[in-house]
């Protein structure tokens, strides 16, 4: 495959190009050029809603004498990011698993058992969650990280529960999304007029230019509107919840997008074969 054949298909001067600008394990900044808005937006949407992670989905509460209600705590537990590297390959969705309820192939058990015995406020954090699987544990950034606060207890209060973490995606519940908001920008000078700025007096002072503007040609004063122009450079910037590495979220989203098209292609073949015999 070469750039020439691909650009003939996509209608851009060359094949898609990626520019990586910043990369940390939980943060990435890159741009994607020579693709259509629909494809670029598809990648953004796939990163938010289609990349699977693990998150607590079932909570069995044995004892809860804290001031927080069972469902309140269950909700908080669900939102705790769990390390989810390679969950895509290593786990099945419970709904597609062969088991009747849940099993090791589609879920991970985490237990929490704390009691406050001292005469002071005790903080129950995500660090107290004991996972049965060393690969799927609550996210902490380093040894000093106190973990995520789940509840506070006074002397005599107790919290004992069993959590079942399952594989899921952001389109079912945001707790499964590996990213916290994806910055997606194109046409920073708004030459294409895809947006109309709300202003009080002056657009230039009220809407400062995006940092991506330095990579594009500023508009020339009095330049006529180019109604044939299309966006072709897209700027992405996002942080993960810590459940996955930022570079892997991008990879995973591309693989998932490709798998979606491939699945449909197979379905189309199956449908064609079925019609032949009818």
């Amino acid at each position: 495959m070469n750039d020439i054949s691909l650009s003939a298909i996509t209608g851009f001067d060359s094949g898609p190009t990626v520019q990586l600008k910043e990369l940390e394990s939980d943060h990435i900044k890159f741009s994607l050029s020579n693709v259509d808005l629909s494809v670029a937006n598809g990648i953004r949407r796939a990163m938010i809603a289609d990349v699977p992670t693990m998150a607590i989905d079932l909570v069995e509460i044995e004892t809860n004498t804290t001031v927080l209600t069972d469902e309140f705590i269950a909700h908080r537990l669900g939102l705790i990011p769990l390390t989810s590297t390679d969950v895509d390959k290593n786990f099945a969705y419970t709904r597609e698993c062969n088991c009747t309820d849940y099993c090791n192939l589609c879920s991970v058990e985490l237990n929490l058992n704390v009691k406050c015995t001292e005469d002071r406020t005790m903080e129950v954090t995500s660090r107290e969650l004991i996972s049965q699987n060393d690969n799927i544990v609550p996210v902490t950034i380093d040894d000093q990280d106190p973990g995520i606060l789940i509840a506070k207890m006074r002397k005599g209060q107790e919290l004992k529960l069993k959590c079942i973490a399952k594989k899921g995606t952001g389109k079912e519940h945001a707790k499964w999304s590996p990213v916290c908001g994806v910055g997606f920008d194109y046409d920073p000078y708004n030459k294409l007029r895809h947006t109309t700025y709300w202003i009080e007096d002056d657009e230039k002072t009220e809407w400062p230019l995006s940092e991506n503007a330095k990579e594009e040609q500023p508009p020339i004063e009095g330049e006529p509107f180019d109604y044939n122009a299309v966006p072709n450079k897209f700027y992405y910037k996002f942080e993960t919840t810590g459940s996955m590495e930022a570079k892997d979220v991008v990879l995973s989203s591309l693989n998932i997008l490709q798998a979606k098209f491939d699945e449909l292609r197979n379905e189309l073949k199956r449908e064609q074969n079925m019609n032949q015999y009818n």
């Binding site: 994607l32 494809v39 098209f261």
Partner: peptide
């Protein structure tokens, strides 16, 4: 065509990852 396009972006992205000429900062990690 879309499968080919995805493949191209994947190859391109992996190439740029391997180049390691981006600003790398491990930060809190």
């Amino acid at each position: 065509d879309l499968i080919e396009l995805c493949e191209h972006i994947l190859v391109e992205y992996n190439e740029k990852l391997d180049l390691k000429n981006y600003k790398y900062d491990e930060g809190v990690f």
